[in-house]
């Protein structure tokens, strides 16, 4: 009974982690950007989605939330990341450090601004499906089941997009050899824009789903960035499948700890594992560099 409970709860939270981390890792794989404002963009989706839902209803509210995350992702790219990448004053080898710092500061700005506007209290979006279902004796919110399914549907769509469309294959190529792609006549700018678009939508969906599952607020921004970051490092930077595996490892490890040890210690074992992975296998579980 307890085992089944852990299996169900762990699956839902892992699926949500996976969705959050996939965009993050894709962004790094394709454009080399480690976006430390990830948590802030996720929370923007939740807050705007919540505010919009009270006026427009739950479905439209969720949509507005996702669009808000997309807008926040574009703002991050155009106002923070691209100026740093293009600045002649910043030496090429230091660009990544500047992007890290820039996105971190951007995240703090969003956090303080959003806390001032919305308060730092967590918000929750009304579940798309109310009620509970009984899965072999475990009372599970129907919304939780739907979230797990939806996460996998979105990840499946992403797989189709990357592997079955021309634009998607260009993304993959950019991850492997951007210079070659330019020689073939592709505009790197439009590829970067595409990956930021995909990233914004994924972060937005993760944000509104998180708001309807557990509730989320500006105080969670740091934790959200940190968990996406550790999942991606554990899975191997830039490796989408590695991130999926790592998301489930972290999700289940946390759930096991919360149920069997103490809810307070929830994030600890996963962080210890991360240290171990970095020490023993620095390229991550499925990393390629």
């Amino acid at each position: 009974m307890l085992a089944l409970q852990i299996l169900i709860d762990g699956f839902a939270i892992s699926a949500l982690y996976a969705l959050g981390a996939v965009g993050f890792t894709l962004l790094f794989g394709v454009s080399g950007v480690l976006n430390l404002s990830h948590g802030a963009i996720v929370v923007v989706a939740a807050l705007i989605g919540w505010a919009a839902a009270s006026i427009l209803g739950t479905y439209l509210g969720n949509l507005v939330g996702v669009l808000a995350a997309l807008a926040a992702a574009y703002a991050t790219y155009f106002a923070v990341v691209r100026p740093i990448q293009r600045s002649p004053a910043i030496p090429r080898e230091e660009t990544e450090i500047f992007v890290l710092t820039g996105t971190l500061l951007w995240s703090i700005m969003i956090q303080v601004g959003a806390a001032w506007w919305f308060t730092d209290n967590p918000v929750t979006i009304r579940p798309l499906i109310a009620g509970v279902v009984n899965i072999v004796g475990v009372r599970t919110p129907a919304n939780e089941v739907m979230i797990a399914v939806l996460c996998w549907v979105v990840i499946g769509l992403l797989w189709l997009l990357v592997n079955r469309t021309r634009a998607g294959r260009a993304l993959l190529a950019a991850a492997i050899n951007p210079r070659g792609l330019v020689l073939l006549g592709f505009e790197l700018d439009s590829i970067y824009l595409l990956v930021w678009t995909i990233y914004g939508v994924l972060a937005g969906i993760a944000g509104v789903l998180l708001a309807s599952f557990l509730g989320v607020g500006t105080n969670n921004i740091g934790q959200l960035t940190a968990s996406a970051f550790s999942i991606v490092v554990m899975g191997g930077l830039g490796s989408v499948s590695g991130s999926l595996v790592a998301a489930f490892v972290v999700g289940y490890l946390e759930t096991l700890t919360a149920y069997l040890v103490a809810p307070t210690l929830r994030p600890v074992p996963a962080l210890l594992l991360l240290v171990l992975v970095v020490y023993v296998r620095p390229q991550g579980l499925l990393g390629r560099r």
């Binding site: 759930t255 919360a258 809810p263 929830r266």
Partner: peptide, 11 residues
């Protein structure tokens, strides 16, 4: 419980 707790299901 820790005030940082987000998932109260186990509790």
């Amino acid at each position: 419980f820790n005030p940082d707790t987000t998932d109260f299901t186990p509790i």
